[in-house]
Amino acid sequence: MKKFDLLVTGVGGQGVILASNIIGEVALAAGYDVKKTDTLGMAQRGGSVVSHVRLGRGVYSPLIKADEVDIMVAFEKLEAARWSHYLRPGAVAIVNNHAQFPLSVNLGDEPYPDDGEIVGILRRSTERIYLIDGTSRVEALGNPRTLNVFLLGCASVFLPLKIRVWQDIISQRVPPGVQKLNITAFNRGRKEMRRVYLRQGAAEYGARVVDTEDVRGGGRA
């Protein structure tokens, strides 16, 4: 049984915690030992959020060591950069191409790093960087709140967990009435990761594309 250490990060209110809970439950159903932990600031919304999810045969620490994350799922670009020192060399970084400005940027006190800088920061650890147009894709699908499961669909390509289990757990965990919408978003995320992003990577910013469909861990949809 291979171990996977995942870091899920974003801004309070984006659905990071639910996403990391879903990963944990899917892995538990697949027979993994699971530990997951969230670090939140003091307020309900708007702060930086990071979840550590650890899957393996036997997991001790709920916190992942620096340089040991296998897969990062970032709902927001600045947060991807902020937690990039957790990535192991050659980790997968799935980064939603979306910027949510902190107050200091809104007030004009600090600049928000541009895409080149963010990819450059991630490239200190890995070339496997995928900038995903998640926010605009789920808006097009009809509900911005499905961003988290869309990104889970992207991440599922790199995990040996059955699609059926992902879909079952997502259906159980999202509010009744939006299950179908969420399953659609998950399937779309998975499909676009395989068909588009896997080939494309962040080549635009100088990162080499190293993945092909063969590296994926997941079963077929």
């Binding site: 600031g41 307020a43 919304r45 930086s48 947060e79 902190p102 200091s104 928000y112 650890s125």
Partner: peptide
Amino acid sequence: SSPGPGVVPGLPKRPPLLC
């Protein structure tokens, strides 16, 4: 093992806010 890249300095912080 070769030490990792470390925390990125100077990124804008994201303190919690009133909603």
